[in-house]
Design a protein around this nucleic acid. Structure first.
Lengths: 160, 160
DNA sequence: CCTGAAAGCCCCATGTT
DNA sequence: AACATGGGGCTTTCAGG
């Protein structure tokens, strides 16, 4: 052990912060006054809390959830990728490549059977094929890919 | 062919709608007046468009993006699930079970080697084990699960 | 469908406890 | 750290093009 745990965690969240985050996760456009009312605190207090959480990076941003099928991307898939080498430089250069994959909803570097899982949304199956061939398989460190079509997304209970 | 395509798609989006959606996907808390200014239309027009898109379900909601590690869920994983039977009733009952998995960020029903991919966030590896054993493997239709730890999420370019 | 104006409400800086 | 206040800005409705 070369470092001891912090005596007071600067990232500690109290109950008010947690309730606030839960509300904003459900409705990111709730007004500050409505949020303050719901939490039972003054508007100014509420505003200060939200700002602090933003500045600390606990709130990363607020984003609209768009129906991708309605905007021309009716097809989703998960592309599982396995590399032939896990050399640090190869992995780094691969990161730069997959970060540019058009239509990527989420890119995860994982441990286990696969190395990367890429969740994508595309306009057509042709586009999906082109995406895999031209943006993933092109990289020489890629040994294997497998594409799984998304039939359905099942709404879960979430984490908050 | 038992039905012909609609002569005018009620879900058609024009260029204004698309620009508006892109802005809201980036910053879901942008004010209506700022959005109107950016798009070069009257505030009332902008408000009406956003409302219509919400009512049509194109905008599903607006949610805060929270740093899960900061709120006590530092570990993420993807659980790949394979079923022993693809009978419709079995699948339906399995849906109800996995929809209740605590900490599920995303649940995808996919085609191919696996049947389901569950992206979860948990407080500890112990909790991860318990989650898989008690909420996924318990179901008799589950033949196989494999859990892959998420090392890193790589920011992509997105779809909009 | 889009606009402009007007009433009302919200945001948030400031001062106080 | 939390609260009360007030000016300026934002939201939202509605009549009109």
């Amino acid at each position: 052990m070369t470092k001891s745990p912090p005596t007071s965690d600067p990232a500690a969240l109290d109950a008010l912060d947690r309730r606030l985050l839960t509300e904003l996760a459900v409705d990111g456009r709730i007004t500050n006054s409505a949020l303050a009312r719901r939490l039972g605190v003054a508007e100014s207090t509420c505003l200060q809390r939200v700002r602090a959480l933003r500045e600390r990076g606990v709130i990363r941003g607020v984003h609209a959830d768009i129906d991708l099928a309605a905007v021309g991307y009716p097809i989703q898939a998960v592309v599982k990728v396995r590399l032939g080498s896990h050399n640090r430089d190869h992995v780094a250069s691969f990161h730069e490549v997959i970060a540019q994959v058009p239509g990527a909803l989420r890119i995860l570097h994982v441990g286990g059977e696969d190395d990367y899982l890429i969740h994508v949304a595309v306009a057509s199956t042709q586009e999906l094929r082109d995406l895999v061939l031209e943006h993933v398989n092109v990289h020489p460190v890629v040994r294997h890919t497998e594409t799984q079509i998304v039939f359905e997304e099942i709404p879960g209970v979430g984490v908050l």
